[in-house]
Structure formats: structure tokens, C-alpha cells
Design a protein around this nucleic acid. Sequence first.
DNA 1: CTGAAAGCGCTTACAG
DNA 2: CTGAAAGCGCTTACAG
Lengths: 336, 336
Amino acid sequence: MKKVSIADVAKTAKVSKSTVSQYLNKRFNYMSEDTKNRIKTAIEELNYQPNYIARSLKQKKTSTIGVIVANILHTFSTEVIRAIEDYCQLNQFHVIVCNADDDPNKEKNYIEMLRAKQVDGLIVFPTGENLDLYEKLIDKKYPIIFMDRLGPNGKGFSVLLDNEKASTIAVQHLIDEGIHQIGIVTTSLNQHLTPRLERVKGYRKVMRNNGLPVLDHFIINAELKEIKQSVKDLLSLSNPPKGLVAGNDLTLIEILEFCREVAIKVPQDIALVGIDEVPFASAFNPTITTIAQPTFEMGTKAARLLLQEINKENDQSEAVYRFDPKLITRESSKQK
Amino acid sequence: MKKVSIADVAKTAKVSKSTVSQYLNKRFNYMSEDTKNRIKTAIEELNYQPNYIARSLKQKKTSTIGVIVANILHTFSTEVIRAIEDYCQLNQFHVIVCNADDDPNKEKNYIEMLRAKQVDGLIVFPTGENLDLYEKLIDKKYPIIFMDRLGPNGKGFSVLLDNEKASTIAVQHLIDEGIHQIGIVTTSLNQHLTPRLERVKGYRKVMRNNGLPVLDHFIINAELKEIKQSVKDLLSLSNPPKGLVAGNDLTLIEILEFCREVAIKVPQDIALVGIDEVPFASAFNPTITTIAQPTFEMGTKAARLLLQEINKENDQSEAVYRFDPKLITRESSKQK
DNA sequence: CTGAAAGCGCTTACAG
DNA sequence: CTGAAAGCGCTTACAG
């Protein structure tokens, strides 16, 4: 399987390589019909396929972006990635997706690998470390967009949920349902992570605004595997919460599993609101009240921003784009 | 941000480009300590990063594989991709993931794009068309592995579930639970798709082997959006099935939603077994009996096979690797 | 309207 | 032990 190159096409069509290249790049300004046809025939005859690698080397751009996702197991991530791919596809850009598995070392390796592959820009769901590395990239004007979490010290471009609002809506909804003893359960021990911090902040604020006590022991933060135990401890208190906000989809599943295992009834014994919409929300019994993120809009926005950065169509050098969470009221949050 | 190249390093270290290249490729056989150190210092000083694009052009290999997944919304796909990435990461290979969205045209575009980008090989979850294209690639000895579905006319390397066994196990389990009226619900109207065909075949066979009638109207095949209506029609029959096998995760969710909407009780009114494990299986009420695919093993196998192909370590030219499904018995299938 | 030449940033036989 | 030279497959100013 010998690869056919532009030189072979040129020879077959009896023109120069330059002319073939012009043809391929649709610069027909001065090309005679005859030449065009000869080239066209030669390409078909030889079944010629251009080599993007060579073109990229010369043009110093790859028309490829990299996406590094902290953890691909979240439905949120998958949906955002789809939106990014759709937008890039429409704009003739290619996407390389890498999953950092919440591991800052993997994240760092991927950044280096993608840069070595000369991707034109990066969309990152940051793990929360490698801040210096990100700062260096931003300072160098390397096109980069942060998704779901803020960039280093809030620098650069970020696309994320209004997390404070998300937990505010969730908690307020429970309060409106007559539930006053409310807890919040989050994962991710890393203290830098935006969503967790902001969601807890929103929780505290809305409780206070409603004149309700903010009890620190109602704020659970544990690794995924420890969630069940933590929730168990929480619900074993003499005066336990009557409503819980799950910090994300995987947390929600843990809580639901726990409740089923010990026959705690949702929503009668404990009302639930999950942040992040889940595929089974309407299938579950009870159906699950969730706070949905506009994943499609967010992914599209990040991709559009990045391509603008790459094409230098954007004069700003930083901005934070917040998206509105949406409450989807279902049964799990209604105790009345 | 001027890019620093191997020439800059050479100049700073006062050696030739060749020597720097040798250093980068760890060919130290004959290199003096002094030279090594000078190069090392120069690289650090200039913050030099090699350009893989240039290397790839010269070496005619990119150390990158492409993965084209028919539909990334299936949990199965996500898990297989993770396994592929893990294996490639360990072997210094990079992965470009593309989502064909069940659209043969997108699939074709992606194949061409990935080949233009000179990926060293491909793992494809085929949409069921583009058979001629695949056959051409196989004939050219281009490294390619088919996942989840057989290759064109069964040619080439495939990694997939023993689908017949999967539905056999599912149906036999229901029969063992005393349920004799069993239906099966699948999606994907495309008639070429291996899993659907094989799963229905297994269903028919095991019913027959148990001396049970095979009723064609108990075999539902509909697009995802039509599943609910089809199931409704099915369960409205005067003598409806008492147990259902869901063909995949998304089908299962549709069925569960339908049952909840019309207050059909699972498993009392209808017992359920889902093919494909789902994240919420143990959280659901009732917990869901599923047939799990060994996604991790399958992904790893495909990646290993592909790298062997690429490195020409494999003397066979085709093989089909079948993986065993595993029954995870939970509550949704028990009517007793 | 088309071609010769240089060059993108590497690697690799080969010479010394 | 190290360097000069050729070349991977393209693109692009420039000359004619």
C-alpha cells in the first residue's frame, strides 16, 4: 500500500506540484478548465488522499482542538463533549478528547501531548491543579477555554454553570415545599474546585436568607465511595435533615442506592433534588427533581469561543460566561 | 510566542541538529556526557517542546489511533472508550474519538478525516453501512478493528459480545423464574446490525428449546421515540407478555418510563431484564436485573489487537472475538 | 495561467 | 563520538 502523494498526481496530470496544490485548495482564479480536469482525473485515478500532517507542518496549524475532561463518567461531560464536537464538525475542526480521570498528572501529560501534537487550542475541564501551567499558557496567549470550573485565579475564559444559583434554586424549592431541615452532599475533596465551593456557598446563603440555621454537619463532603456512610451518619442524627441536595449525578445515585438499601422512603422520609439532569430521572420511582445544566449551550459556547480565539476574532483576553440552571420539578422533592 | 525548534536547541548547545535528535530519541550509545549535558541545559533554557507533527511526517506514523463510535450516548460506548484510552495511554499511543451519531455519512467523513490525519489504525463501532469502504480498508491491510458489531461480511477483526448468549441467558432466567410469556424490545432499524440480529436469534432459539411458542408480535423493533407506543400496544394485547428483555440501556429507560407513566408495576405486572448494565441498576426500585458486557475487557482487547496489527505482530488476518455476557440478578425479574 | 524553489521541523543513513 | 545532507508531503511567495 504505497501512499500516493501530490507529486504522483502532478506527474500523472502533467502539471507541477504547485498547481495541484492550488487545485486542492480551490484557488481556481487563474486555472484553465483543461488543467482542472486533468488534475481531477489524476486524483480519481490514483485515489489520492491529501496528507493533513504535511499540510499542518507547513501551515503551522492543525485545525484540531483538544478537549481534556476531568472525568468522563459524568453525564454532564459526555453531553458537553457532544456539543463541542457538533460545533467543530460544522466548522471543519477536529476534536481530540482525553479523559484525565480526575488525576492532575494525567491532565498534565495530556496537555503536553496535545501541545506536542500542535493542536490549535484547548478546552479543559480542569482537575483543580496545574494552575501554574494554565497560567503560563494564558500568558502566552495560547487559546484555551475552561469548562465547568474557573481558570487559574479566575484568569482566561471560562464557561460554567451559575453554581450558586443552582444550589439556591434547589434549596429554595425544598423550602417552598415546606422542608426546612436541608443538607447538601458533594464529592471532590480538592478544595479548589469551583462547582463544589459555589454550590455550598449558595446553600449557606439561601438558608440564611430564609432565616434557617446553617448547620455545618448538614454539609457533607466525601469521596464517592464514602458517600453512603456519610449519608448514613447524617440521617442517624437525632434531628436529621428532611431534604437533601445531591451535588452531582454520581452523588445522587449513591444516595438513591443507600436509601433503597435501608428502606428509607423518598420523598416521604427524605426529599431529594439532584444537581445535573440524569437519564433515568423520569423513569425512577419516584421521578427525580433535578437542576439541569444547559449542556448543549455550554459546549457550543466553549467551542465557539475557542475558535474565535484561534482565529483571533476576539479582542477580549478574558471573560467568565455563566449559564442558568433550570429546575425540573418532579416527585422526589415533594413531601406534602 | 515564537516556537523553538530543534535548530535553536542545536545552536544553543553548539551541536548539530542530528545530535539533538539522537538525544531526544534516547540513542545515547555514543554520546559523551558533556554533549548530553549541554543539550539538556539548552532544552531547559529554551523550554523546547518537540513537534510531533514534524516527526510524524518523517516517520510516517503518528502513534495515534482513531475511534469512531456509532452512538456515544450508550454507557457501553463510554466504558469501552475508557478502556481503549487506558490501554493506549500505557503504550504511548494517542486516541482521537469521534461520534458518528448513528449517521453513516458522518461515519464516512470521520474515516476520511482520520485517514487524512494519518492515524495508524482505527477502532470502529460500525453504523452498519459503508461496508464497501471497510472492505477496501481491510483489503489494503489497513489496521482496523470492529467493535460491538461484525465487520463487512464478517471479514477482519471483530470484538463483540456473544449476543445470542446474552439474550439466551436473559430469557432463560425469566423462564426459570416461571415466566413463559416473554417479549423482546430492540431499537436500530438498520437490518445489518449484528447485536440486534443475534439477540433476536438467541431469543427465538431459547424459547423454542424450552418448548415455548415464538410469537412474532412479541418481538418489538422500533426507533427509540416509538418504543413507548410499541410497548403500550404490546401490553394491550389480550394475552400480553409477562416478561420483557430490553435490547439495550436506552431501550430499558424508555420501558421503565412507560411503566411508571401508566402505573404498570415492575416486576409484578411485567418482569424486566435489561441487556447492558446501567449506573442506576442498584438504585432503582425495584433494582434492575441486567446482562452486563465486560466492557473493560472488550475495550482492552480491541486496543491490544489494533496495536498488534499496527506493529505487525499478528500473523492472522482475521478473527472474531466473542465475550461472555454476565447475568446480574436483581429484583426486576422476579415475579414469585 | 503555471512552475521552480525554498522551507515547515523533524529523522536517519552515511561519512568521517 | 558527531555533523552534513537528503527527504517526509505539503504550501506559498515569486518569477515568468
